[in-house]
């Protein structure tokens, strides 16, 4: 049903460390691979080898630059997927009951057997976390790899979302935010984990860790060199003067 649960037993989600992410897009590819083979309709590509390729992805990595006047700029790689919001605006707008938020763990999912592909949930999401698959005509979104995290057929170390398992930099962490002692809750407390677009009132579960302060951003640019004196002495000076005369 499209009524949001008043609270969920667990709050499963991701912590994304913007200080550590190197922007390799491995999480994007691993997500596409897993979710094309498993949960629901595959993530299709249109015109994949043509002039105008496009496709469905549940996770995309943007790269931003932040710059203060007079300082060197910083580059921040920024992976973005569903934030499994506590007040998920995508769920109540759904007319068919296809979108729902699970009471047991807070994961926001789409039941593709009910989705009519109207796209209103994607309109309601401020983060661009939902994409309508052009081939299947149903809404696709991050499932937090619900088919991995409880899957006892997988070795225990694989029972985490595909993007987290893949990240070579260790920039992605998975856990329960309802438990203050969990790895993700501790990370958020230590590093000042933040919400994206808090003004939208969505109460995202996923948190982002801001880049650590640089040692001295202002001092990273080398001071300008002293202007060389006009008078050049010694052999080079003689050569310079002689060549001038010729």
């Amino acid at each position: 049903m499209t009524q949001l649960p008043t609270s969920t037993e667990k709050k499963l989600g991701l912590v994304i460390d913007l200080d550590t992410c190197v922007g390799c897009h491995a999480c994007v590819i691993s997500c596409k691979g897993w979710n094309t083979n498993e949960y629901g309709a595959p993530l299709s590509d249109m015109d994949a080898y043509g002039g105008d390729p496009s496709g469905t992805f549940l996770n995309r990595v943007h790269t931003f630059e932040a710059k203060q006047e007079g300082c060197a700029s910083q580059t921040i790689h920024f992976p973005k997927s569903c934030l499994h919001c506590e007040d998920a605006p995508c769920v109540p707008v759904c007319p068919t009951g296809a979108s729902y938020k699970r009471e047991e763990d807070g994961i926001v999912l789409v039941n593709e057997d009910k989705c009519m592909g109207c796209g209103l949930c994607a309109w309601a999401c401020p983060y661009g976390a939902r994409e309508l698959d052009e081939m299947a005509g149903v809404m696709k979104k991050c499932t937090l790899c619900v088919d991995r995290i409880y899957n006892e057929n997988l070795p225990e170390e694989d029972r985490i979302p595909s993007c987290v398992r893949t990240c070579p930099a260790g920039a992605r962490h998975f856990g329960d935010f309802a438990d203050p002692e969990s790895n993700v809750s501790k990370l958020v407390a230590e590093r000042g984990g933040m919400d994206l677009m808090p003004e939208q009132g969505t109460k995202p579960v996923n948190k982002y860790l801001p880049p650590r302060p640089k040692a001295d951003v202002n001092g990273t640019q080398a001071p300008a060199l002293e202007a060389q004196s006009e008078e050049i002495t010694g052999f080079l000076g003689w050569l310079d003067r002689t060549l001038e005369k010729i």
Binding site: H62, E65, S73, I76, D195, L196, P210
Partner: peptide, 26 residues
């Protein structure tokens, strides 16, 4: 763009590189 990325404390934010070379649904 600052509230969307949470990076406002670091200065003025701009998109340096899109996540994909082509169009997408969004």
């Amino acid at each position: 763009i600052e509230s969307a990325t949470g990076l406002g404390d670091l200065g003025k934010v701009r998109l340096l590189e899109k996540p994909h070379s082509g169009e997408n649904y969004l």
